[in-house]
Design a protein around this nucleic acid. Structure first.
Lengths: 258, 258
DNA sequence: ACTCTACTGCGTAGAGCGTAAACAGTGAAT
DNA sequence: ATTCACTGTTTACGCTCTACGCAGTAGAGT
C-alpha cells in the first residue's frame, strides 16, 4: 500500500486505472512527468496479444515492448488482471461500429456481426475469463448500441436487456467454437489441430451407434465433413444460429404488440 | 520425451489420458503397480477446485491432496491443461442427468436446467478457457442427450446440432454472468463485490443520459435494483432467456413441418 | 530560492508456478 | 536369474506476478 497504483477507495469504487479509462480522475500534478501513458501500455498489450497470443502477454513482455521495466507498469495498473480488462476495452475501441438503419431485426443482426468481427480480429479476448458485468467504457457503449436497436419494439426495458444479452452470449459462444476450429486448421496446436479435421471420424471411433444414436446420426449426415474448411461455412452457421435467436426475440415482440 | 506420459501418436490422435478416460488403451502390465489412478487425481483436482477455487488448483496442491509428489501426476497426465479438461469431464460425470418425457420443448428445457445446475455446483468450470469442440466422454454423452430431445421434430441433423449448441451457449453465458453476480454478494472479491450491488448507480455515475439514453432507460426501469439479491430472480431471468431461445427453435420447427 | 513532499521509474527479491531430467526401486516377461 | 519397461520422487530451471525500497524529479508552499 506504500507505492504503486493502489485500488484505493473512490466515489465509484472502481480501480484507479478503470477511472482513468473513463476519463474521470485528474492526474496529480506533483511529481516528475510520466514516461508512459495508460493508453500506450494497453496498446502495447494488445499488440503483444495480437502477435504472440494471450499467452505471450506478461508484464515483462509488455514493458519490453515499450522499452520500460516490468515494475514501471504498476504505476499505471494495479495488477495484470486490470491490464487484461483494459485490453479488452481497448480492442473494442479499435473496431468501428458501423450500424445500419432499418427494422429492429436488421439493426440487431448488424450489431451482432460487428461483435463477431471483433472476436475474429482479437481472438485472444475469448481466452480471458469473464469477470462480472461490463463496466468499461467501450463495452458499455457497445451495450448502449445494442439496446438502441430495440427502440420502438414495445419491449419492456428488462426484456430489451435480456434480448441483447441473448445475442451477445450466442455471438460469443459461436466465436469461441468457430475460432478454435479455424485456428486448428491454420496454426498447429498439437492437440486440437489433429483432432478437428477428423472430428466426425473421431466420434465414430470413440462411441457406438447403440449408445450414441443421435450423435451418430449427426455425424452420418455429414455435418462435420465440410465444417471449418472455409469461413463461408462458418458464416453460414453463424447466421443460422443468429436467425434462431432473432426469431425468439421476434416472437416475444409480437406477443407484446398483440 | 524420455519419461512421463507423452502425447504420443495413437489411432485416435487423442492424448493418452483422454483415451484412458474413454476406457480405451489398456494399461501396460510391466512395471510396479500404480499408486494412484487417473480418477483419483481428477477427483482430487475437482475437490481442490470446489473448495479453493480454480486458482487453487496447481499440480503441487492436487498432489498434496493425495499425499503424493507433484511430478507423480505426470505419470497419469501430460500437462496441467489435460488435467483441467479431465476435471471438467469428471464434474459433468458427477451430476445426475434426470431427463423427462414430454414435448421436445419440455425435454430441451429440462436438459438446459441440468447444465445450469452443473455450473452452479462447479462454478470453476466456467473459469477454464474453452479449447476446441467437446471430445470427452461425459460431454459427448451430454450432447447426445441434448440431440435426443429433438428427436421427432422434423429438423435436419445439422439443425438439431445448431439448436443444441444454441441452448448450451445461452446456458453457459447466463451461468457466467449470474455466477459472478451471485459470487460477488457472497464472498468478497474486492473489485466485483463493491461494484455489483450498485451496478445501476455506477452506470449513472459514469455515463450521461444524453450519450447513453438506452442504458439509462434500463437502469431507470429498476432492472438492476433487485437483481442478484436472491436466486429466485436469477432463475426467473434464466427461464426468460431460455424461453426466447426455445421460441426461436420452435419457429424453425414449425417452418420445417409446414 | 529553498525546502517539502508527492510522485516517478526501476532493481531487487520472494514466492509460486509448470515441468524437464535424472534416479533408484519394482515386478512381469524372458 | 536377468532384463527392462514402468513406477514415484528429488532436484533444478526458467518463468510468472508483484511487494518493497531506493534515487531522482518537479510542482507547492514558504
Amino acid at each position: 500500500m506504500s507505492s504503486g497504483m493502489s485500488d484505493e477507495e473512490t466515489e465509484t469504487g472502481l480501480p484507479a486505472s478503470f477511472e482513468m479509462a473513463w476519463g474521470v480522475r485528474d492526474r496529480p500534478t506533483k511529481g516528475p512527468k510520466r514516461g508512459l501513458s495508460l493508453e500506450q501500455i494497453v496498446d502495447a498489450g494488445i499488440h503483444v496479444a495480437n502477435t504472440e497470443g494471450i499467452g505471450g502477454v506478461s508484464m515483462g513482455r509488455v514493458a519490453k515492448e515499450l522499452g520500460a521495466s516490468a515494475m514501471s507498469l504498476y504505476r499505471y495498473v494495479a495488477s495484470k488482471d486490470e491490464l487484461l480488462a483494459l485490453m479488452i476495452d481497448g480492442a473494442f475501441g479499435q473496431i468501428e461500429i458501423e450500424l445500419v438503419d432499418g427494422t429492429w431485426r436488421e439493426r440487431l443482426k448488424r450489431w451482432a456481426e460487428v461483435e463477431l468481427v471483433a472476436y475474429r480480429r482479437f481472438p485472444w479476448i475469448l481466452r480471458i475469463p469473464v469477470t462480472g458485468a461490463p463496466i468499461m467504457p467501450r463495452q458499455l457503449w457497445y451495450m448502449e448500441q445494442g439496446l438502441r436497436t430495440l427502440g420502438g419494439t414495445g419491449l419492456e426495458e428488462h426484456e430489451k436487456l435480456s434480448a441483447v444479452l441473448l445475442v451477445t452470449s450466442f455471438t460469443r459462444s459461436f466465436a469461441m467454437l468457430s475460432g478454435d476450429i479455424a485456428a486448428a486448421f491454420e496454426a498447429g496446436d498439437p492437440t486440437t489441430a489433429r483432432i478437428m479435421p477428423r472430428y466426425g471420424e473421431l466420434i465414430k471411433k470413440l462411441t457406438t451407434a447403440e449408445e450414441y444414436p443421435a450423435l451418430h446420426a449427426v455425424v452420418d449426415a455429414g455435418t462435420f465433413d465440410e465444417d471449418g474448411e472455409e469461413f463461408d461455412n462458418l458464416d453460414y452457421d453463424f447466421h443460422f444460429g443468429l436467425e434462431r435467436v432473432l426469431d425468439g426475440i421476434e416472437s416475444l415482440i409480437n406477443r407484446r404488440n398483440a
